[in-house]
Design a protein around this nucleic acid. Sequence first.
DNA 1: CTGGATCCGACTGGATACTG
DNA 2: CAGTATCCAGTCGGATCCAG
Lengths: 129, 129
Amino acid sequence: MELALLLPPGMTVTPTMKEQCPLRDTLDRIGDRWTVIVVVLLLPGPRRFTELMRAAEGISQRMLTHTLRGLERDGLLTRTVHACVPPKVEYELTDPGRALAGPLTELLHWSVRHQESVLAARKTFDADV
Amino acid sequence: MELALLLPPGMTVTPTMKEQCPLRDTLDRIGDRWTVIVVVLLLPGPRRFTELMRAAEGISQRMLTHTLRGLERDGLLTRTVHACVPPKVEYELTDPGRALAGPLTELLHWSVRHQESVLAARKTFDADV
DNA sequence: CTGGATCCGACTGGATACTG
DNA sequence: CAGTATCCAGTCGGATCCAG
């Protein structure tokens, strides 16, 4: 499959037709501040709310809830409530959710490989301005 | 390289230490509304400002400028001004910029493969709420 | 043609307080 | 423990007008 698929003949790339532009839709989902972090933290296995809270340093309760809800909504993770006191809720990636590991790894490769040149370019650019 | 690299031992994933979390940095760069679209439009070859304007349906002049500046700043594309009347400016991806095609293709694969299940899950979720 | 400058609404996300 | 509700600041991005 080619990246050109993002641009079928006669079709423009517009953010307003997300369902016909899957990549756009995906980027909207994982492009926010915390989604990728939460997914990565869940890759090793199920985690509880508070565990995630501690692991994702800097996240607020509100954003952790929002992020988890978004992933649950899209079927990328499951939310399991254990009826006990104190309450215990476990989050676990589904197969589609775990499948994100591949693409994310690719992106990580690129990030690491080009990080130095990117930071250097950024420094130079900012210095000139 | 493993995705776990995103989480070196003893290090937490925090958006505040971007330079030590390359993936986070990358997502910040390509996670906005237009960057990926512009990169994809530039993959076939150099393009002029107005060409990009037409191809990226819905983009405003301001955002096209901003997006191009951001990519130029990170050394992902070059900006060439041809001294003529009317002015002519060409944008062309650099090697690092072109290298983004791989990871983006991976992400596209995931998007297409799971689009149906994601949309279905979303529909179900919204119906229950 | 290729932008820069300004204004402004919408959305994102953090802080805090409260609850079953 | 695992959230919900509310408030609020910062940012993103569109519209419009102006300029080399």
